[in-house]
């Protein structure tokens, strides 16, 4: 045990200070903010219709009319990237919220009831043993290429990770004197879980949530890239790259532009997650490789 990993100067200051003070997290926040804003404003900012096919304009190079050129169906790549951000961010945020919701509920119950713990955790171990991409493509293959099935496919493999985290927090919290005190004064079980144990999980869950968000955006891109994502008509960053595959030798920018935006978005989210972790839970730093 050592505090070496902590920047000594950051400790006495208020928690938000180190978040604002690090230039890297500021840059990350600005980049992510920009991506979110332009994605939300896509209907007003996009110069062209992202789905309309214009065969005459196939694979046009970058020009004043098409800032990033057009794809194999004559659609404007910039407009598609702008609209694609909406889907990718929706999936990122959505799967973070859903997996934390389910993971929190399962983890709280599993951590508190010993008899349930063994059963639930074996099932979670099993889910974790299945490579997430394989699980996700199997789910999408079965339930069709809709947004909701992609969301389920991406969220499902993340749940056991949240469960493990919550359970670990609960296991240590339930031995604390204040929980014992709550039990002895006869607080109801839901109240103990809700009021006394659950708040302990918030800090690690916020950090985990950012990582899940980043991972989900990445997984969506991979699923679409493999042809097992959302309906190819819908612009998402993964879909744009998947369509670019066929023209890679002719026009590599069809993969590189969305790839760049995707990477910057994920990088920013990861950096903000790291910053949040340093602020909220300094002890987590020691486990940082383990996520």
């Amino acid at each position: 045990m050592t505090d070496q990993a902590l920047p000594a100067a950051a400790r006495p200051r208020p928690a938000w200070f180190s978040l604002v003070a690090s230039p890297i997290s500021v840059i990350a926040a600005v980049c992510l903010g920009l991506i979110i804003i332009v994605s939300l404003l896509a209907p007003w900012l996009a110069p062209h219709d992202p789905v309309q096919l214009v065969p005459a304009n196939r694979l046009k190079p970058a020009s004043a009319a098409y800032l990033l050129g057009t794809d194999g169906y004559g659609r404007d790549v910039l407009s598609r990237i702008l609209y694609g951000g909406r889907i990718s961010l929706l999936i990122g945020v959505g799967s973070a919220i859903i997996s934390i919701g389910f993971g929190l509920a399962i983890g709280l119950v599993a951590g508190f009831f010993r008899w349930l713990d063994a059963i639930v955790m074996r099932f979670m171990d099993a889910l974790m043993a299945i490579p997430s991409i394989l699980l996700a493509i199997a789910v999408v293959a079965l339930s069709g290429a809709s947004l909701s099935s992609v969301l389920i496919a991406i969220t499902l493999p993340e749940i056991p990770r949240v469960v493990r985290l919550v359970r670990a927090v609960v296991l240590s919290a339930r031995e604390e004197p204040y929980v014992e005190a709550a039990i002895s004064v006869g607080s109801s079980l839901p109240k103990i879980l809700w009021r006394h144990i659950m708040p302990n999980t918030f800090a690690p869950l916020i950090v985990q949530g950012t990582y899940i968000c980043a991972a989900a955006i990445l997984t969506e891109a991979i699923l679409s890239f493999l042809g097992a994502g959302i309906n190819p008509e819908t612009p998402s960053w993964g879909n744009i790259m998947a369509e670019g595959r066929a023209y890679f030798q002719v026009k590599p920018s069809l993969i590189f532009w969305p790839g760049l935006v995707l990477s910057v978005a994920i990088l920013s989210i990861n950096l903000l997650g790291d910053a949040a972790r340093d602020v909220l839970d300094p002890r987590m730093k020691r486990r940082e490789g383990a996520r």
Binding site: I222, M241, G259, S263, I266
Partner: peptide, 18 residues
């Protein structure tokens, strides 16, 4: 390390191919 977690493997792959 952060970069390695953030750039998808297929983007890295296509950059290397290019």
């Amino acid at each position: 390390c952060v970069l390695g977690f953030s750039v998808p493997v297929f983007v890295v792959g296509y950059v290397l191919i290019q």
